[in-house]
Amino acid sequence: MAGRTTAVAAVTALTLLTTWAGAHGATAATTTATAAAAAGECRVLAPGASAVAQKAVAAACEQIGVWYTWGGGHGPQPGPTYGQVDPSDPDSAHDPERLGFDCSGLVRYAYHRAAGGDPLTGNAYHQFHSPQVQQRFTAAQGTAPLLPGDLLAWGSGGSVHHIAIYLGAGKMVEARESGTRITVSDVRLGGDYAGAVRIAPAAQAPGTFSTWGTDVWTHEEPSTTSPRVHKFPGPTTVRIDCQKHAEPVTAEGYTNDAWSYLPEYGAWITNIYIKGPAWLDGVRTCP
Rank of each mutant, 00 (worst) to 15 (best):
T81K: 07
A200R: 06
T236F: 00
E247W: 05
K275I: 11
A164P: 09
S226D: 08
M1L: 07
A114C: 07
P233W: 14
R188L: 10
A28D: 07
P90G: 13
T211G: 05
P287C: 02
R98L: 15
G253Y: 09
W212Y: 14
T250L: 06
L189G: 09
A110L: 13
I240L: 14
S185P: 00
D91C: 12
R136Q: 13
T32I: 06
A53N: 03
H230V: 10
T237S: 15
T69Y: 09
H245K: 15
W154S: 01
R176H: 14
L167H: 04
A124S: 15
A23C: 04
P277D: 15
Q134L: 12
P263W: 03
L262R: 05
H126K: 14
A2S: 11
G149R: 04
A164L: 08
G116H: 08
I269T: 04
Y109C: 00
T224K: 09
A203N: 11
P148K: 04
P235W: 06
A60I: 08
T208C: 09
A153R: 07
A7L: 14
A246D: 03
R98E: 11
T225F: 07
Y68H: 12
T121G: 12
T34S: 14
S92G: 05
A13V: 15
E41R: 12
E264L: 04
P131F: 06
T15K: 01
A139D: 06
G48K: 11
L45V: 03
G191V: 04
V283R: 01
G117P: 02
A2P: 01
R181S: 10
L167A: 05
T225P: 07
A153I: 02
W279Q: 10
K171R: 15
H219D: 01
P87T: 07
S92F: 00
R188E: 12
P47D: 15
Q63K: 15
D186T: 12
L151C: 10
P248W: 05
E247D: 14
G276A: 06
V187F: 09
Q243H: 03
P90R: 12
Y261E: 03
R113N: 10
C242I: 08
G179V: 09
T30A: 14
G190W: 08
S223R: 10
A29K: 08
C242M: 10
V66P: 00
G155C: 02
Y166F: 05
T31L: 10
R136K: 13
A26N: 10
Y111I: 05
P233R: 13
V229Y: 00
G253D: 09
G142C: 11
A246H: 00
H230I: 06
R228F: 08
T31I: 07
S104W: 06
R108H: 10
W20N: 02
G65Q: 11
E97G: 04
A56C: 02
V173K: 00
L146E: 03
S260I: 03
P287T: 08
R176W: 13
T6I: 13
S50I: 03
T285M: 10
S130L: 11
W154D: 04
V44C: 00
D257E: 05
L147N: 06
L120H: 04
Q84I: 04
